[in-house]
Amino acid sequence: MKKVKSSILNIVLVLAGISAFAGVTLASVYTLTKDTIKDSQTSKIEEAVRAVLPPYDHVSLKPIELKNGVETTNVYKAYDKNNAMVGAAVESTSNNGYRGTIDIIVGFNTKGVIMNYAVIEQNETPGLGAQMESWFKTNIAHQDIQGKNAGTSNLNVSKDGGEIDGITGATISSRAFLFAVRNAYFAFTSNLDVQDQGTKVKVDSTQQKSSHL
């Protein structure tokens, strides 16, 4: 078989053919994976929401979404049998990690005490920043954020005058993590009485924005 000549017609035909091939392949893989991608994300979040909340009867898994520029915050409220709120799980992100975005879920009771947290997404250095998955719930004084009232505690790394000891050798990751925690609390308090879906409330994202790229 001889090689096809480089005439304009041939070029157009071949490029069109390859584009069609690319289009069909991509479209089919896209439709195949679209739902799975969405599912795996939502199920991960649902699992995390259940893990970080105080004992509850039912939870609104449709979040109240708050968005202000870069950071998105989702609030999932939990209720007991009598439909009284027992706490909320807040998904909060920080773009200031050592290697990109850190996405966490923090659980609060109604008084604003941190019950637990879960890391949804982080890409920090293994052995350093990646320790955040367990560091801030290890039962050591000045390290554990569980049981602290986010409203009255100074949730900053001790280097910056706060009361939490950051991960050794990973101050940037620790700062980003605690920033997300504070942001979560802010979203939590500013929404205690917001009931309807999709209401926008200002989230404190002025500080620290883009300080680490």
């Binding site: 096809v4 000549k5 041939n10 070029i11 053919g17």
Partner: peptide, 8 residues
Amino acid sequence: KNLIPERI
């Protein structure tokens, strides 16, 4: 390989 013209 034989269907792709040289120039592209």
